[in-house]
């Protein structure tokens, strides 16, 4: 079973990298661009048949290592 996890900075945490990417795109003429937040993407394969059990495990992975919950949020999606 495959899942994706995206980790992004929380709304109220400053994202200087996202800001620089945003400014560069604006300079390239993307004038309707409103905002960019940069994050991380993980593709995770897990040896498990029960989707609920697998999701629980992935959640544990996010909490223990993949995200720093002080500054980051995460989303899990089944692929």
């Amino acid at each position: 079973m495959k899942f994706s996890v995206t980790v992004t900075l929380k709304k109220d945490v400053l994202d200087p990298q996202g800001k620089v990417v945003q400014n560069t795109l604006l300079n390239l003429g993307m004038d309707n661009l409103k905002s960019i937040r940069q994050g991380k993407f993980f593709e995770i394969e897990i040896d498990e048949k029960d989707e609920e059990v697998a999701k629980k495990r992935i959640n544990e992975m996010c909490q223990k290592l993949l995200a720093n919950l002080i500054i980051e949020d995460y989303k899990i999606n089944k692929l």
Partner: peptide, 16 residues
């Protein structure tokens, strides 16, 4: 901070 022994975290320098 990653172990939780100290609270908070260290972000990327503001000027990158």
């Amino acid at each position: 901070t990653e172990t939780g022994l100290l609270k908070g975290t260290l972000l990327r320098n503001k000027n990158l």
